[in-house]
Design a protein around this nucleic acid. Structure first.
Lengths: 259, 259
DNA sequence: CGCAGTATTGAAATTTCTCAAGCCGAGTGG
DNA sequence: CCACTCGGCTTGAGAAATTTCAATACTGCG
């Protein structure tokens, strides 16, 4: 389970790649990103990175593994909010919202790069184009949260589960870390129930239904897609909300000062 | 119902006030905001401002009334995502996410100021402090979405409704547009059901329960708080997620170039 | 081998939804 | 001034879905 720590240079390139998914950056922008300092940290399964109520002073970039965000309810129960894969930055918001309103933990053995808030803030102040990229990233996050509201409020159990799987596979695919027709999804049925707002029994029956229809299989933390088209239909999945395309060319030009 | 259009100068001051809730701005920042051009538009109840799938070229600031964001499902059903009051900017994300993944409509006769994307982008590129304020605003939005996930997934019907009411009243209060113990909430029971992920019958029973316990009353589009403490308890409401306090002093200083 | 955590299954208890009908209040037109 | 209508609210009751409870497998690992 213990793998070699990722090379720092690799992390820098991953971060730049992520930023470039959200904006067209100049060489100077990239250089500025490269200069941002960070430290690598390994996480064990279930380990928390930050907890609800804390005031972190650094933001997280995932170089390997998978993290989750969750609310802790008054009765101690958990509500999972989102899942994040290598290349994601689940915690940019902590830069601007001092007190954490949720926790972040590792779903599997993972490795993260921790960027000091101060350094990031300076980077964003000096390089509007970079700020723009990371801002956009937080906006896509918000779009994913919106979709989760709809998913947990308006879909029946099998569709709900199917939608979650569509989203995770699609994002893993886009990030280039999915196998041909499968990806990691290290959640047991109890965690799925705490994600989808239903009991673990209902999750189990929903899963059975999707398996019976040969749409997917999910076991041992691996999601196997059996019939993508069928799954998309069952889920009512429309990836528009993931906003894979970049910002408009106009905005990009303005941000690069070519007004 | 048709009131005088808000004075443009008033809108400018409202916008600055909103920005200052999220960051400490310089006089130059404020001047730059003041120079942003916009046009006023009146909206009738139920009128859409933008629809899912469209590519708007301006962002909305609410000068009077109340707007909602919602998803339209494949079967034509609606899922409400959030509600916005005077002083809110529900649509900043459209600046960076070209295609709307949801619609925005008026819940009552309202008035909005529409800011051109191009002008806003230039403003943000030139004034990092201003960008910071609006970025933070979108992050609070995201925190509210997260809370909605939890609300609709993990709370029983009366708590769910109570939580929505707590949030709306608290925000109206903060915005200074609530009466002593009441505020607007122009939603009928069907709309509430499309917000909270339950049938309108269940909404009705939940409402009865809260009325019976003398916690609140909700009728004719007005929310009346009868027992704030009791309501907060019933809802499990903790306003931390609304992030009413500003960003840290350090970030503010960096953004003002005092590094 | 046995433990612990997870998955699976059945069945009862409970909640929520659907359906159906009546009511109420505001606005309308005769 | 009074039926009339329309939208929204209220209520009851049966149907359906979900949760809870309980018990039994399964699996990886020490």
């Amino acid at each position: 389970m213990t793998e070699e720590p990722t090379d720092k240079e690799t992390v820098r390139e991953m971060l730049i790649a992520k930023a470039e998914q959200h904006a067209t950056l100049t060489a100077a922008d990239n250089d500025a990103i490269r200069k941002a300092t960070f430290r690598i940290r390994s996480l064990a399964t279930e380990e928390d990175v930050v907890r609800q109520g804390e005031r972190p002073d650094s933001a997280v970039f995932i170089s390997r593994g998978m993290l989750a965000r969750y609310h802790t309810l008054p009765d101690g129960d958990r509500q999972y909010l989102s899942f994040h894969i290598a290349g994601d930055m689940p915690d940019v918001q902590s830069l601007f919202l001092k007190v954490m309103d949720h926790s972040v933990s590792a779903l599997m053995a993972s490795e993260i790069a921790m960027f000091d808030h101060r350094g990031l803030t300076q980077l964003f102040a000096r390089r509007p184009g970079v700020a723009f990229a990371f801002w956009r990233l937080t906006l896509v996050d918000a779009a994913i949260f919106r979709q989760a509201i709809t998913n947990n409020s308006a879909r029946d159990p099998p569709s709900r589960l199917a939608h979650l799987c569509c989203e995770q596979f699609y994002r893993a695919r886009e990030a280039g870390i999915a196998a041909e027709m499968s990806c990691d999804l290290p959640l047991n049925q109890t965690q799925l129930s705490q994600t989808l707002g239903m009991s673990h029994i209902t999750v189990h029956r929903a899963l059975q239904s999707l398996r019976r229809d040969r749409l997917l299989d999910l076991r041992g933390g691996k999601l196997q897609i059996l019939d993508w088209g069928g799954l998309v239909t069952r889920a009512g999945f429309d990836p528009t909300y993931l906003h894979i395309a970049k910002e408009s060319a106009i905005s990009a030009r303005i941000f690069r000062g070519q007004r």
